[in-house]
């Protein structure tokens, strides 16, 4: 119970930190500008402008969410160690894992809030100038939340292990590799005897399989989505985030604060 109080205290402060971060405000503005731009662009398309608005809108929200997750996330723990703001905090009866978990909860909920905000703007935008909002679109938005949350967890993990630059690099690499996880799988299926196949198999298991969180194609073309296509990625997301946080806690457990 006391653990919960402490975790929520860390989470609350981290939430404040993130919400008051300038990166976040700039990126939100950027997203809105891009929505507008997608509308302008779609006017040039001879047909299906609503498809183009939805495509670009969904892409932008995920990318902006991921950019916020990476650039605000990689400084979360390391930045505190660097600026020594962590010292008085860890001088209190707080377990290191409580700190890491609190940081994640606070940060991810702040990102979530911003992300939902962006999607609400997009929904309003689509209902005014686009082709309206379908349940498929909402499903795509839901799964892309997990895509962002996975990146949040990864950024936080690297942040508690190494410097912001390295963390950002690692997170970006994993994010991109994750985006192409299905391509890796496909390559393995087509070339089972490839010399790199064992390495690729390991990579496929380790990288976040973000391909399965992408229902954007299905959303804009009104392709039916089964419940399993939502449930399994959700479970995958929960397990992946938990594992990543576990690694982060273990790495941070005995770390010397320089």
């Amino acid at each position: 119970m006391e653990s919960l109080t402490r975790i929520s205290a860390v989470a609350q402060t981290t939430f404040r930190e993130t919400i008051r971060n300038k990166i976040l405000h700039n990126m939100l503005g950027f997203a809105v500008v891009m929505f507008g731009l997608s509308w302008v662009i779609s006017a040039w398309s001879v047909g299906e402008p609503e498809k183009i608005i939805a495509d670009i809108g969904l892409t932008i929200t995920v990318l902006v969410g991921v950019i916020i997750a990476i650039f605000a996330g990689v400084v979360l723990v390391h930045g505190e160690v660097d600026r020594k703001t962590i010292l008085p905090i860890l001088a209190k009866p707080l377990h290191r894992w409580e700190y890491v978990l609190g940081k994640y909860i606070g940060f991810s909920s702040a990102v979530l809030l911003v992300y939902i905000g962006m999607n609400v703007i997009l929904i309003l935008f689509l209902s005014v100038v686009g082709g309206g909002v379908s349940s498929g679109l909402l499903k795509a938005m839901y799964l892309s939340i997990w895509e962002v949350e996975l990146v949040v967890a990864l950024a936080l993990m690297f942040s508690s292990i190494t410097t912001p630059w390295l963390s950002a690099l690692n997170t970006i690499i994993l994010f991109i590799a994750g985006r192409f996880s299905y391509d890796i799988k496909f390559f393995l299926g087509a070339h089972p005897g490839n010399a790199f196949a064992p390495v690729l198999k390991i990579i496929y298991v380790l990288v976040p399989n973000l391909s399965y969180f992408n229902l954007r194609h299905e959303a804009v073309h009104a392709i039916p989505v089964s419940a399993q296509m939502l449930i399994y990625p959700t479970l995958y997301g929960i397990i992946y985030c938990s594992l990543v946080l576990l690694i982060a806690s273990l790495a941070f457990r005995t770390k010397d604060l320089a």
Binding site: D55, I56, T59, V62, L63, R179, F180, Y182, V220
Partner: peptide, 11 residues
């Protein structure tokens, strides 16, 4: 397009 093929197609 980081595997966001729809958007790549649009652009």
């Amino acid at each position: 397009a980081l595997a966001d093929d729809n958007t790549a197609a649009d652009l």
